[in-house]
Amino acid sequence: MNNKFDALKDDDSGDHDQDQGSQKDCEKEKNDNDEDNDQNTAKKKVCVSPKYNATIAVPGVGEHPLQYNYSFWYSRRTPGRPASTQSYESNIKQIGSFASVEQFWRFYSHMIRPGDLTGHSDFHLFKEGIKPMWEDDANKLGGKWIIRLRKGLASRCWENLILAMLGEQFMVGEEICGAVVSVRFQEDIISIWNKTASDQATITRIRDTLRRVLNLPPNTIMEYKTHTDSIKAWEDFHGLVNAVGGR
């Protein structure tokens, strides 16, 4: 691939890409600032797009509409900075929202494949209006399936996962909240979040669909984790009492 970011040394350096003009750098800050505005009620299709004045993404003429609108997010842990709720929330950036298959590809194709990301990075793809945080109303009672992947598999698995989600192949109604791919040092992790951690039938169905669409070997370990547990573990780890979020 065109790893134009090979020269990239630091994530938040804001380096310009040599080949492409970076006319949008300025938007970064704007994005961060606006993020606090979206105190949405976590209802689907409520657009909370920070940058675009709450314009709901709509499919273009002749495009293939999706069942739900979605937003891409990107986050990267800044080296040396302690993880905290604040840093997590400030590090997560919404990349864009889309409402149709074509619009999805438009974003996706201009994004680096997860396997080519560097450092401690995540892509998130959540229904529009749902923030990729445990504390979001849509997520707080939910949980996620986690699949750990050896290096080299993330790109393909991620694509298969989100296509299944966009194409409504999980068939669990409105239960799906979003999906995350996390690039780590020795492994990559993909996960899919749903709304109700106590809904066993849904969880089971999601797991089966995951197995199917990801073509996972039968012995692949899949772990379901409620966000409540995630929060608790995070708090324990950081010794915090009043954690609002974090990873």
Partner: peptide, 21 residues
């Protein structure tokens, strides 16, 4: 339609600077 870069797509080097091929 998918090959046109979204206007609202922030350019993050190494993240959103891919070119559809």
């Amino acid at each position: 339609a998918a090959c046109v870069r979204p206007q609202d797509l922030e350019l993050i080097p190494g993240v959103t600077d891919n070119t559809p091929d």
